[in-house]
């Protein structure tokens, strides 16, 4: 660890894995969903389920999904903050040994649209988003990321990456997934810098892309 990481972060307590990590998971989910849901449901697994309430993991997740950062004192009151925004909140608690000890599924709902984000809090405030709906991903909040949902067709990666290249931005990692039996696909690019607005619009305009989301690098 660097000195700056040893004497930080500034965060709402009480636990870096169960509180700060949960907030950062919520933050990524908030950017992926990209708008206000009418309903948020959280399924907590294992240690998150067992000791989460005492660590305010519930409040941390809600607050994170409202876009509050790790040092935002409003986390403490995130139930009422969600209520004020007209968002319904629910929780389930499960034990599942196949899942990470500190693991959560977040389900956003608005009318018929449902989005699920699965993530782990891996310790010291570090996190890993492992799934968006049925697509496998690996998002850790350390890079600006571009997430694209699209109908697959030949050349999609080239169509996207040529705009990224034209913008002069390096791709740190790229994950593509296609669901079995359908053409539904997802592409997740972790980038060294953010893309400019024009590039983003060009990418969004590519045929077959029906949803594009950006997630900024999160402060730790």
């Amino acid at each position: 660890m660097k000195i700056k990481d040893v004497i930080g972060p500034t965060m709402v307590g009480p636990s870096s894995s169960h509180t700060a990590g949960a907030i950062r998971i919520g933050n990524i989910a908030y950017y992926i969903y990209g708008r206000q849901p009418s309903n948020m449901h959280f399924t907590l697994y294992n240690s998150f389920a067992k000791t989460g309430l005492g660590h305010g993991t519930d409040k941390a997740l809600i607050g994170g999904c409202l876009g509050f950062l790790v040092d935002d004192i409003r986390i403490r009151d995130s139930y009422s903050e969600a209520k004020d925004r007209g968002i319904q909140v629910g929780f389930s608690f499960k034990t599942d040994r196949s899942r990470h000890p500190n693991s959560v599924d977040i389900e956003f709902q608005d009318g018929n649209s449902i989005l699920t984000v699965s993530a782990n809090s891996t310790g010291a405030g570090n996190i890993q988003v492992i799934k968006i709906n049925d697509f496998n991903v690996d998002l850790r909040g350390d890079y600006y990321s571009l997430i694209l949902f699209y109908k697959d067709q030949p050349g999609m990666i080239w169509k996207v990456t040529k705009f990224v290249q034209a913008n002069g931005v390096n791709i740190e990692s790229l994950i593509c997934n296609r669901l079995e039996d359908t053409d539904d696909s997802m592409m997740c690019l972790c980038l060294a810098h953010s893309l400019d607005q024009k590039t983003l619009l060009s990418i969004k305009d590519i045929d077959n892309i029906f949803m594009a989301r950006t997630v900024p690098a999160l402060e730790k």
Binding site: M1, V6, I7, G8, P9, T10, M11, V12, G13, P14, S16, T19, A20, G56, K59, D71, I73, I75, R76, G125
Partner: peptide
């Protein structure tokens, strides 16, 4: 009580 602190370490 979920107040703001500096994790150190």
């Amino acid at each position: 009580r979920m107040g703001k602190i500096v994790a150190c370490p």
